[in-house]
Each structure stands twice: as C-alpha cells, then as structure tokens.
C-alpha cells in the first residue's frame, strides 16, 4: 500500500500558487502534515481526497493515477474535511445511513458499522437527536464517524480537532493511534501537540513547498542543543523577541521564562530538552532564511 505524490502543483485563478512541485511518498502509518495558515495543507488534502485536480504532477494510489481513475481511491477513502455540513433535519443514524448508501455499503454492513462508530465517537446517547441541535464538537464527531464508515485504507483528516473540547481531543488522538497500522492516515493540522501525540511521520509544508519530511525523532535531533531557556525582566521581552527566535514565553514571579531557538545561547540562558514545537519553528525559520532543513527522508 503506497500513496505517491509526484511534483504536484496547484494554481488557482488569479495566479495564486497554493502548491509548488510538492512530492511525498507515504506508507502505512500516521503522517502529521504541519504548516502555518495558508501553507497549502487544505489544497493538498482536497487533491488527495479527489475533490479537486492538481494543475501539474500526479498522485498515484497503489500505482494508479487518481486523476485518471479517482474511484480506485474513493472506494477505500475516508475524508474528514476542514469545513463540512450536515443535514439538520436528520439524526446521526439517518445521516450516516445516507452516507453509507452513497459510499456503496450494503444495508446490514452499514447498520452494524454505524452502531459501532456512534459508540466509538461517544454519540450513542444522542443518536436519535436531529443534527441541527448538535453542538460544533458533536457535529465534528459525526464527521469523524462518516470518515470511518467504509473502513478506509487511506484516511485523510483536515484540522480534525477544531471545535473539539480538550477531552474529546485526547480521545481523538487515541483513536488515530488505534487506527494506524495497515492503513495510511494523513492528519493535517497547525496544532503541533496533535501531531506529537500520534504521528509516525511528519511533513512540514510552507508556501506550498515541502520544507521537511522525517520521523519525529529525526526532527527533534535537528534542534538538539539549540533550545535555551532564558529568564529576563518582562521589560526586556520585546527586545529579546527582536533578537532571537522565541518559541514560547511563561511569566513567573522571577521574571519571564523565554524559550529560545538558536545556535548560540545568550548570556545567562541554560540549555533545555527540545520538543516538536521547537523543531517545527526551527524548520520554518530555516526555510524562511533560505536554508534547507536537511531532514528529508
């Protein structure tokens, strides 16, 4: 099972280039696709989900070009878009039954699968309630359930934790970890902690270009020895932000604890263990500076 993205570009009307010769090869596991807002993540997701076509390049699913034969992928595809709607007059069961019919599942399979999925996403109690009365987080869980209806081999989830409360977010992360195995899961997000918890591979995208593709450990190794914590008076914080790449700040009684990324430490700073957020910011800063992060697999 392999998904190959080969030199894919997407240019919208008025010349906006959302993806620029993007290449990636995916095997079973969870790929965390990270990038700032407007990086091209959603464009890539919609191309992989056969919603839109690439302007250039091709995407191969098990060797088949999905632009030529999209149904080869669609029959094993689960897709949770960033923005989607529901039919407000249907309840969760009816809505999932409708989508199961659209996806071509037979009635008995659909019934069993819907029961299991509603239990999985914790909606069994409200299964008969019209979707129009659901909260945003509950609708998102219906979206997760529909993506899993056909037991997909390729699961694409675009900003899946948007609208979920912290507890449901933790549940969803666990769910994604459980789902990986003999399937490819693509998790697109700008929330690094979601990726940190689940991804077996990470791709970082910025301005439509692949900045880095590596295992989390490889990304972390890249910033080892380059993360510092520096305690400064709050009055000096703005000056510090101007001079260094600041990963985070925490105000405490002894001053502001500033987490800094850099080759050299300022006087008084102490080295601290790196995390994925540091690695992500470091990769983006290197990319903006024109340097190659150098962690391509």
């Amino acid at each position: 099972m392999k998904l190959e993205i080969q030199e894919v570009s997407k240019q919208y009307r008025r010349g906006v280039l959302a993806l620029n010769r993007f290449s990636l090869e995916l095997k079973p596991g969870v790929l965390g696709l990270l990038g700032p807002n407007g990086a091209g993540k959603t464009t890539l997701m919609t191309i992989l989900a056969t919603i839109t076509r690439a302007t250039e390049g091709r995407v191969l699913w098990k060797g088949t070009d999905i632009a030529r034969d999209p149904d080869a992928l669609r029959s094993v595809l689960g897709y949770l878009p960033q923005d989607f709607g529901v039919y407000p007059n249907l309840n969760a069961v009816e809505f999932l039954e409708y989508l199961a019919a659209v996806k071509g599942l037979d009635s008995a399979t659909a019934t069993r699968r819907i029961d299991e999925l509603l239990e999985l996403v914790n909606l069994t109690e409200v299964r008969k309630r019209p979707l129009g009365g659901y909260s945003g987080g509950m609708k998102q869980r219906v979206g997760i359930a529909q993506a899993l209806l056909n037991d997909p081999q390729l699961l694409i989830v675009d900003e899946p934790t948007a609208g979920l409360d912290p507890e449901e977010r933790v549940r969803f992360r666990n769910l994604l970890s459980d789902l990986s195995g003999e399937r490819i899961v693509i998790l697109s997000t700008h929330i690094v902690s979601d990726v940190e918890a689940t991804a077996t591979d990470i791709a970082i995208i910025a301005k439509g270009v692949l900045v880095a593709h590596a295992a989390p450990e490889a990304l972390l190794r890249q910033v080892e020895g380059k993360v510092w914590e520096w305690v400064i008076p709050s009055a000096e914080l703005n000056a510090a932000k101007g001079r260094f790449l600041v990963s985070s700040t925490t105000r405490r009684s002894d001053g502001v604890h500033v987490r800094i990324l850099g080759e050299a430490a300022p006087i008084g700073a102490v080295p601290v263990p790196s995390n994925l957020e540091d690695a992500y910011l470091y990769c983006l800063s290197q990319h903006r500076a024109g340097a190659q992060p150098g962690v391509q697999q």
Binding site: R113, D178, L179
Partner: peptide, 22 residues
Amino acid sequence: PHLSAAHLTPLLRTASQAGSRT
C-alpha cells in the same frame, strides 16, 4: 466508549462491493 478503533468490525471489501442494484 466501550469500543476502541482496533475493535471495529473490518469490512469485507468483496461483500460490500456486491449488489450495486440493491
């Protein structure tokens, strides 16, 4: 939830693809 994703009943692709008229 009582179920985890690992315990979902796998779909039999050949069975699910049959009976398109139905």
